[in-house]
Simulated scan of single mutants.
Amino acid sequence: MTTKYAALLRGINVGGGKKVPMAELRAVLGALGHADVATYLQSGNAVFSSDEKDANVLAAELEQAIEEAFGFRVDTLVRDAEYLRAVAEACPFPASSLEARQLHVTYFSEPVTADRFASVDAAAHLPEEFRLGDRALYLYAPDGLGRSKLAVALSRPAVVKGAVATSRNWNTVVKLVEMTRD
């Protein structure tokens, strides 16, 4: 039985570096034997179906294929449809009453716990807020991510501590859920 997945590529097609055209990314995924391949936006979101049940195996294979195709490494997270839906449903903020630019989810390669973020003075960043989920962090940034001082504090290397982390705005979170729905 095949499973629907989303591949979340970190840091491509921004600032002139690490260019990965979406048509070529679709071709790479197809060459790996995946079906139902589609991409969303230019920021590294792809969905596909696979018989492989281990998302970490899929991520490692895709990272290797991208490096072979484009000549650089791209950190990649692969998450199944059930996980994506659960993250969206567990949002602790009133997503339906917020603008998409105000709400973001950062997906992590490993579980995130409160002690990882103990050095972040959350009260100093109000009205911005964050909450933790299952390998995810929800960020409410009323003025958008580009102006968020809390987002900067949350992305410091001492906080991320070697985990792969990649953020998506709420529109993208919802779209990936829709695209991976059977």
Rank of each mutant, 00 (worst) to 15 (best):
A38I: 10
G144W: 08
V28E: 08
A81R: 02
H34F: 14
A27H: 12
L84Y: 01
A100P: 00
K4V: 09
Y40I: 06
R147E: 07
P92R: 01
A60R: 11
T76V: 14
A90M: 13
G11I: 12
Y40E: 09
L139T: 01
A114L: 14
Y40L: 12
G33Q: 11
P92A: 01
S155F: 08
P142W: 13
D182V: 15
L84M: 08
S109E: 00
A6S: 11
V74M: 09
L139A: 01
V87K: 02
A100T: 06
D75S: 15
A141C: 07
F93Y: 12
S109R: 00
A35P: 06
G17K: 14
L137K: 02
L137A: 04
V173A: 00
V20W: 05
E68A: 15
L132N: 08
V20Q: 02
A35D: 14
Y83W: 15
A100I: 05
N13R: 10
L150E: 03
T39L: 10
E99R: 15
V164E: 02
V174H: 05
R181A: 14
Q64R: 13
E178L: 03
L132E: 08
L137M: 14
A65V: 11
G162R: 00
L77M: 10
M22Y: 06
V164A: 07
V164C: 04
G17Y: 07
L29T: 01
W170D: 11
F93A: 00
R116T: 04
N171A: 07
A23W: 03
V78E: 10
T166L: 07
E129N: 12
A55R: 03
E128H: 06
A100R: 03
V105F: 02
A158W: 00
T106A: 08
L150G: 01
E82K: 10
D36N: 14
E61Y: 00
P94I: 07
K175H: 04
A123C: 02
Y40K: 08
E68C: 04
A124V: 05
R26W: 06
F72G: 02
S43I: 12
V14D: 09
A60L: 14
E128V: 08
R131V: 05
D121V: 10
L103G: 01
R131Y: 04
A153G: 06
T76W: 08
L150Y: 05
Y40N: 09
V112S: 00
K175Y: 05
V57A: 11
A88E: 13
E68W: 07
A158S: 15
E178H: 03
G144D: 11
D36T: 14
A23K: 12
